[in-house]
């Protein structure tokens, strides 16, 4: 799905003011009230981007937080504006950890600006499953939080481990870096690859996998940033063998 979309966009660049379809920037997010769900937006370089609508933790999109800047990484989607912004999809938003009191823009509902209907999509920005024994969990920037989707994938991995009589589970953690549209690079904090991997391993043990059956590997050299796809380097790969 992700790959298909990116490929499609490569042949039809629609927003000529910025080269390519990839956007990555750190800004204050904005929330726009509507008649239905509030929309989350972000302004960058004179343009407004649509990130997603408010939902629950079972959705793929976990919205930003006012009082914090947000790292937005996404691909511009061709077509009409959504809720007043250019849609990005896939999009990964990472809430920056420190407080920024200047991030407090709330826009009122306005005629003609409407939220898109809610559609349930697969949690592609959190988990990729390739067969029952292999899944990749994705993380927000500088974060080791396991979303509902990631924890669900671990429950499934353990169920498969038990059912299949597999001998071990390999856990490999990575950290990433992000090439911003401004040309700067943001790199995740050192040691995070191991923190992520250990957390996943501990969780597998807590879910009933014998400790001796879990092997942990951490690649702490950040995967080099190159723009599109950087978000998917912040990951842990779980393989039931």
């Amino acid at each position: 799905m992700r790959i298909l979309l990116a490929g499609l966009l490569a042949v039809s660049p629609v927003w000529p003011q910025m080269a390519g379809s990839h956007r990555a920037f750190v800004v204050c997010p904005e929330i726009r009230d509507t008649k239905t769900s509030p929309c989350w937006l972000a302004e960058y370089s004179g343009e407004t981007y649509f990130l997603g609508i408010q939902g629950g933790v079972a959705e793929d999109f976990y919205p930003p937080q006012l009082e914090h800047q947000v790292l937005v990484e996404g691909e511009v989607v061709a077509g009409p504006r959504v809720c007043g912004g250019i849609p990005l999809k896939p999009v990964k938003v990472s809430v920056m950890q420190e407080i920024d009191a200047s991030c407090h823009t709330m826009l009122p509902a306005q005629d003609g600006i409407e939220a898109p209907p809610r559609v349930r999509v697969a949690p592609d920005s959190w988990v990729k499953t390739e067969g029952p024994g292999l899944s990749t969990l994705y993380f927000d920037f500088d974060n080791d939080f396991l979303s509902l989707h990631a924890s669900g994938a671990l429950i499934q991995a353990v169920a498969y481990f038990k059912k299949s009589g597999a001998a071990r589970i390999e856990v490999a953690g990575y950290r990433g870096a992000t090439l911003l549209s401004s040309g700067a690079t943001l790199t995740e904090k050192a040691g995070l690859a191991r923190v992520r991997a250990e957390k996943v391993a501990e969780t597998l043990v807590g879910l009933g996998v014998p400790r001796a059956a879990v092997s942990v590997q951490a690649v702490d050299n950040p995967v080099p940033a190159k723009g599109a796809g950087d978000a998917w380097n912040r990951r842990v790969v779980v393989s039931v063998k």
């Binding site: 929330i31 009230d33 769900s37 509030p38 989350w40 408010q54 629950g56 933790v57 976990y62 919205p63 930003p64 937080q65 006012l66 009082e67 914090h68 809430v95 709330m106 979303s147 509902l148």
Partner: peptide
């Protein structure tokens, strides 16, 4: 209403604020 700046509600993937 706007549920705002509540730790463990607005910080857990529901957005801050959340209507």
């Amino acid at each position: 209403f706007w549920v705002k700046n509540v730790g463990h509600i607005n910080s857990i993937g529901l957005g801050n604020p959340a209507k």
